[in-house]
Simulated assay, not measured.
Amino acid sequence: MSTPTETRQWILTNKPTDLPELSGPNQTFTLKTASLPSLKGDQVLVKSLYISNDPAQRGWITKGLDPERLYVPPVPQDGVMRARSVAEVVESKSSQYSKGDKVLATTGWAEYSVQNAKECQACEDLQGLSLTHYLGAFGLTGLTAYYGIKIIARTRKEDTVVVSGAAGATGSMVVQIAKKMLGCKKVIGMAGSDDKCKWVESLGADMCLNYKKPSFSQDLIKATDGYVEVYFDNVGGEILDLMLTRMKKEGRVAACGAITNYNKSEKSGLKNWFEVISNRIEIKGFIVRDFIAEGKGPEAVKEMVTAAREGKIKVGDENETVVDTKFDAVPKTWMLLFEGANTGKLVTKLV
């Protein structure tokens, strides 16, 4: 096979204010073909194999967003949609990587891309586990869960922990780290179906509540009788508002995500903010990049890999939803995030 000189890419052509549009005159993304630059010294040409799908990507493309208020530069107009991938090296001018090596890189939604070798991470063998876990349990997702529940929320054995989005990529890892690695007294999850709740309980949650049930508010109040010390928030919105009323004095909230509002031009606010004042609740937002910048990522990943090998946490096919996807349908698979279609990490497998 000859070395490719062109690549297909998905370009951000219309920044959305509400739900991204995949067709019509205002479609958010457009499929284009671009020439690949020639390799320079210490660069590699890679082919994307598996693409990470993350709710945070929605925040990077919002129309009218002030770049000064974002932790990474927004995806530029007419730029390639940003994403992390497990990719295969197809040509190398680096002593660090050879043809056929698998690497983790920010390829964007592109079939092929040229990468600086120093900005890639080698995907070492996971002893029988799929390399896709470098995008999930042993990647930024797992590190987000670890950093948020252990460092930001300062969770202890005697704590009761509530986790929203508990069947998602980050939430499902939070449940396991809290219960199986930190040994928390009680862990309560929230998910969007009875089947997802059963799966969350199989990971170690003492119970999981279906937030789509009419009785959810009363179920949560009953489950948190006596109130809770820690809430790991992946959703924001009305559930966060309700949880403010279920926190103990000096309770801690790790604010990880706000997917409830990502696709809304009119954001929902909080009615119970006085709870924060009267009960001295600590709410701390965090970005996993801060943890990585401190050089603590590899140590945390090693700890989680060891926990998986010892059977303390479950990492396998059940931790991810891998969707076979033609390159033409990459945005369609990404949109599954906002339909609650995935259990665990949502990964695009290019076929």
Score class of each variant (00 low, 15 high):
residue 29 F to D: 11
residue 340 G to K: 03
residue 195 D to H: 13
residue 299 E to C: 06
residue 205 A to Y: 08
residue 86 V to N: 06
residue 46 V to H: 01
residue 226 G to Y: 04
residue 151 I to H: 12
residue 230 V to C: 03
residue 35 S to N: 14
residue 32 K to H: 11
residue 35 S to C: 03
residue 82 R to I: 02
residue 93 K to I: 11
residue 22 L to A: 11
residue 201 E to H: 06
residue 231 Y to M: 06
residue 138 F to T: 06
residue 141 T to V: 07
residue 293 A to H: 13
residue 134 Y to M: 03
residue 190 M to F: 15
residue 344 G to H: 05
residue 244 L to H: 07
residue 269 G to Q: 14
residue 80 V to D: 10
residue 43 Q to D: 06
residue 10 W to Y: 13
residue 92 S to H: 11
residue 93 K to M: 11
residue 134 Y to E: 01
residue 170 T to D: 11
residue 272 N to T: 12
residue 2 S to W: 10
residue 82 R to N: 13
residue 14 N to V: 13
residue 62 T to V: 13
residue 104 L to C: 01
residue 250 E to L: 15
residue 238 E to A: 11
residue 249 K to F: 12
residue 137 A to G: 09
residue 207 M to W: 00
residue 97 Y to E: 07
residue 350 L to V: 10
residue 191 A to C: 09
residue 74 P to T: 11
residue 120 C to G: 06
residue 297 G to R: 01
residue 217 S to T: 10
residue 225 D to S: 15
residue 72 V to H: 04
residue 54 D to I: 09
residue 68 E to V: 11
residue 237 G to M: 04
residue 283 I to P: 00
residue 313 I to S: 06
residue 26 N to H: 14
residue 77 Q to D: 15
residue 301 V to H: 09
residue 70 L to F: 13
residue 77 Q to T: 14
residue 172 S to F: 01
residue 291 F to Q: 05
residue 300 A to G: 02
residue 20 P to V: 13
residue 121 Q to D: 09
residue 240 L to R: 01
residue 230 V to D: 04
residue 15 K to Y: 05
residue 169 A to V: 05
residue 320 E to K: 05
residue 19 L to W: 01
residue 204 G to Q: 07
residue 324 D to I: 06
residue 102 K to W: 03
residue 238 E to R: 07
residue 233 D to V: 03
residue 112 Y to K: 02
residue 308 A to Q: 12
residue 93 K to C: 09
residue 231 Y to P: 02
residue 137 A to V: 02
residue 54 D to Y: 04
residue 188 I to M: 09
residue 146 Y to Q: 12
residue 241 D to W: 01
residue 334 W to H: 15
residue 97 Y to M: 06
residue 340 G to S: 08
residue 54 D to M: 07
residue 114 V to D: 02
residue 268 S to D: 15
residue 342 N to H: 12
residue 76 P to N: 07
residue 133 H to V: 04
residue 175 V to R: 06
residue 224 T to W: 00
residue 295 G to V: 02
residue 339 E to P: 01
residue 108 G to L: 02
residue 164 S to V: 04
residue 298 P to F: 01
residue 336 L to W: 04
residue 327 F to L: 05
residue 236 G to R: 08
residue 63 K to W: 01
residue 200 V to M: 11
residue 119 E to T: 14
residue 266 E to A: 14
residue 253 V to A: 02
residue 72 V to P: 02
residue 114 V to L: 07
residue 244 L to A: 09
residue 18 D to Q: 14
residue 76 P to C: 09
residue 108 G to I: 08
residue 302 K to P: 03
residue 142 G to C: 05
residue 267 K to M: 14
residue 188 I to G: 09
residue 89 V to S: 07
residue 212 K to D: 08
residue 317 D to Y: 08
residue 113 S to V: 14
residue 315 V to Y: 12
residue 94 S to H: 04
residue 55 P to Y: 04
residue 135 L to F: 03
residue 65 L to I: 15
residue 80 V to Q: 10
residue 107 T to K: 03
residue 284 K to F: 10
